[in-house]
């Protein structure tokens, strides 16, 4: 009575076929990542010695290390975070908790989404116009990190807003019904319950700017600087630009050098991600719902 019919067997065959197609697609996605990572580790791994990390480039960048670029990237990303995070979080709190649902708010939200889609070279040109020329910062760490911050802003806002929206509305209603102001509600209930999501989302998004080249190459990153930056008005080297330079612009660079730089860049981004995930796990442990 419950034996399989021909029809069942056909259905089974078809469903297995689809399953295999989808599985294949998934593997196809993972494969390039594994190949790239493997190649980088195999060829770049041996390059990443203490000398390579902490020495200046020598002989027209064909020897020595990458310390100024390594340090430059860390500085740029950190400053980008410092500029974009407070601004982005404040804007997201306004949009999520205060802004009335009207055409103005909707157009601001639309603008933010569109801003996230602006190509990075356009941000670079904006950075040149605004920070380098108009504000007179010159090509400097300040101008470059501000440009990175502008680029990161929309994703910071979106990540923050999503974390805020994830806090159940019932909590807000409960507070309001007890006579709490919006700020008291945000301060006592909404923020404590969204801070983990906000911070991890923000770190995750901003760490990606470590790999950006276009926004910094016109605003503050240099081909080669023979000394470490002393102030935020100095130029700096950066890993992403350095990678571009030694792979395409300078003859005679040892073949494995670019692999080493690329691996380091990935390690920086991944360790920031790991840090933020660890941070989230720690904060989650203290969450009460």
């Amino acid at each position: 009575m419950f034996a399989a019919t021909d029809r069942n067997r056909t259905n089974d065959r078809i469903q297995r076929r689809y399953r295999n197609v989808f599985l294949g697609m998934t593997l196809l996605l993972v494969l390039p990542v594994l190949i790239i990572l493997g190649l980088l580790v195999v060829r770049g791994g041996p390059v990443l010695t203490a000398e390579f990390l902490f020495e200046f480039p020598k002989s027209g960048m064909t020897a020595g290390g990458i310390f100024p670029a390594f340090l430059g990237t860390i500085i740029l990303v950190t400053m980008g975070l410092v500029f974009s995070v407070p601004l982005g979080i404040a804007a997201a709190i306004y949009l999520s908790e205060y802004a009335p649902d009207n055409w103005l708010t909707r157009s601001i939200n639309l603008a933010i989404i569109n801003l996230a889609g602006v190509p990075s070279i356009v941000h670079a040109l904006f950075g040149v116009g605004a920070f380098v020329i108009f504000f007179g910062f010159g090509t400097s760490i300040l101008a470059a990190s501000l440009t990175l911050a502008i680029m990161a802003l929309p994703v910071v806002i979106v990540a923050t807003r999503e974390s805020l929206q994830a806090v159940p509305h019932a909590f807000r209603e409960a507070c309001w019904a007890m006579g709490a102001t919006r700020w008291q509600t945000i301060r006592r209930v909404v923020l404590p319950n969204s801070v983990s999501g906000i911070l991890t989302g923000v770190i995750l998004e901003v760490s990606r700017t470590a790999g950006e080249t276009a926004p910094i190459m016109f605003t503050g990153a240099a081909f080669f600087v023979p000394f470490l930056p002393q102030t935020i008005f100095d130029k700096t080297m950066a890993l992403s630009l350095h990678l571009f330079v030694i792979s395409t612009q300078v003859p005679g660079v040892p073949e494995d050098f670019p692999y080493g730089v690329a691996l380091l860049l990935i390690i920086i981004v991944l360790s920031m991600n790991a840090l933020s995930i660890g941070f989230r796990t720690w904060l989650r442990g203290r969450k009460k719902w």
């Binding site: 909590f171 209930v189 404590p192």
Partner: peptide
């Protein structure tokens, strides 16, 4: 409004204690 809501308390359909102790 905050004074009004202090003197007129409200209990909701779904219990909604705050995520606090």
């Amino acid at each position: 409004l905050t004074q009004l809501r202090r003197h007129v308390g409200m209990v909701f359909q779904r219990p909604n204690p705050l995520p606090l102790s």
